[in-house]
């Protein structure tokens, strides 16, 4: 059980790192921000529907809004894309756990 936990956590961390790494390459205008934020917001709403939102996603969304308020759209787009990547990882988690939770069950 402990080994599978380590493998699962490792894979999960790698996925999140790749997603967030690609998000960090973002740059853009207000229009880019609005598009990136809408995508992130939609993904986070889906995570909410699955009852599995992450604090980091909420923080990244808040960062994006604050950066956009001060017209720092490079930062705003990067934060929004990070939020989308995190939200998608939480959706992946919730979806895979629909069956995977059984592996931890005491029988």
């Amino acid at each position: 059980m402990t080994d599978s936990w380590k493998i699962s956590l490792g894979s999960f961390g790698l996925l999140a790192a790749v997603c967030i790494g690609s998000a960090a390459l973002a740059a853009g205008t207000e229009a880019d921000f609005k598009q990136a934020y809408a995508a992130a917001d939609a993904a986070e709403k889906e995570a909410g529907r699955l009852r599995n939102q992450w604090l980091a996603t909420e923080a990244a969304l808040a960062d994006a809004r604050k950066a956009a308020e001060r017209s720092d759209f490079d930062r705003a787009v990067a934060a929004a894309r990070e939020a989308e990547a995190l939200a998608k990882a939480s959706i992946f988690q919730a979806t895979s756990e629909k069956e995977a939770w059984k592996n931890l069950e005491i029988r």
Partner: peptide
């Protein structure tokens, strides 16, 4: 109880 959640990927059982 057994479902992993959160960015740390922990369940209550973890």
């Amino acid at each position: 109880f057994y479902t992993r959640r959160g960015q740390l990927n922990f369940s209550c059982a973890t």
